[in-house]
Simulated scan of single mutants.
Amino acid sequence: MFYRKNLPVWERTTRVVAGAAMIACGLLGLQGLPIGYLIAGTGAVAIMTGFIGFCPMCALAGRRLPSP
């Protein structure tokens, strides 16, 4: 199934960078704590949506990119 991208390039870049920081903080800053794993998992989802360019929550809210 193909999804139409609903994230602009600047937000995709921000999601990848912020996701990497969340993973680092979750796994290195909060070693062995459940909240650290939760933060790292959230960072992985942020990176994934940044690479794909589609965010399901933004789609539920009706967010779309302008047509070229």
Results as ranks from 00 to 15, higher is better:
68 P>D: 06
64 R>T: 14
13 T>H: 08
28 L>D: 08
65 L>M: 10
17 V>C: 12
66 P>G: 02
60 L>K: 11
14 T>L: 15
13 T>K: 13
44 A>E: 02
46 A>N: 06
42 T>S: 15
53 G>L: 07
64 R>L: 07
3 Y>F: 10
13 T>F: 10
20 A>T: 11
23 I>E: 02
27 L>Q: 07
30 L>N: 03
33 L>W: 13
8 P>K: 09
15 R>Q: 12
26 G>P: 04
45 V>D: 05
10 W>C: 06
62 G>D: 03
38 L>C: 11
8 P>C: 10
12 R>H: 08
13 T>M: 11
13 T>S: 12
51 F>G: 05
7 L>V: 09
13 T>G: 10
57 M>T: 06
44 A>Q: 03
28 L>F: 14
59 A>M: 05
65 L>R: 00
53 G>F: 09
47 I>C: 12
1 M>N: 07
45 V>F: 15
57 M>S: 13
16 V>F: 11
21 A>D: 03
62 G>C: 07
50 G>K: 03
27 L>S: 04
66 P>V: 05
61 A>P: 01
68 P>W: 03
18 A>G: 09
4 R>P: 09
7 L>D: 04
63 R>S: 07
12 R>P: 04
15 R>E: 11
19 G>K: 04
64 R>Q: 14
32 G>L: 12
28 L>H: 08
43 G>H: 00
22 M>W: 13
39 I>Q: 02
40 A>Q: 04
62 G>W: 00
31 Q>Y: 08
68 P>Q: 07
36 G>S: 09
11 E>N: 08
11 E>A: 12
15 R>N: 12
68 P>V: 03
8 P>I: 08
15 R>P: 06
14 T>N: 09
58 C>Q: 11
59 A>I: 02
12 R>A: 08
45 V>L: 15
36 G>T: 01
6 N>A: 07
47 I>L: 09
30 L>P: 01
8 P>H: 05
52 I>Q: 07
51 F>I: 15
45 V>G: 03
35 I>Q: 13
24 A>N: 08
42 T>H: 13
43 G>P: 02
61 A>L: 13
33 L>Y: 14
3 Y>V: 10
32 G>K: 04
60 L>M: 14
25 C>G: 14
56 P>S: 08
3 Y>H: 12
55 C>M: 06
44 A>C: 15
19 G>Q: 05
1 M>P: 09
46 A>K: 01
1 M>C: 06
41 G>C: 13
5 K>E: 13
64 R>E: 15
31 Q>W: 12
63 R>F: 09
52 I>E: 06
59 A>R: 08
43 G>F: 00
20 A>E: 07
59 A>D: 14
34 P>W: 15
37 Y>H: 13
23 I>H: 00
49 T>W: 04
30 L>S: 09
38 L>I: 15
37 Y>T: 01
48 M>K: 06
42 T>M: 15
39 I>W: 02
34 P>Y: 11
67 S>A: 15
19 G>C: 10
41 G>R: 01
49 T>K: 10
16 V>Y: 07
38 L>R: 02
65 L>W: 02
